[in-house]
Amino acid sequence: MLIKLIELIFKFGPLVFGFGFMVPLIHELIVGFDMALPFGLSAWLVAFAIGGGLGLMAQVRGSWIWQK
């Protein structure tokens, strides 16, 4: 059971990192630098969109950057 869970976490590593680390990191950056967001978007929404989006892209493409 534990092994299966660990395998699953590793398999979806980029998604876990994107939502688990990038999202709160981006949120802290937005709030810390007092960035003005368009259309009244909340900092959390933008953080989830960017961090989660990057994680999803890395999960699908196998790379966090444009080149593999």
Binding site: I6, I9, G13, V16, F17, G20, F21, V23, P24, L25, H27, E28, L29, G32
Partner: peptide, 20 residues
């Protein structure tokens, strides 16, 4: 697991920049 768990734990505790 320890490395990423620590980073994620710190980030959701309000210390994302410090962890990064």
């Amino acid at each position: 697991i320890g490395f990423y768990g620590f980073l994620i734990g710190m980030a959701w505790s309000g210390f994302a920049l410090e962890a990064a």
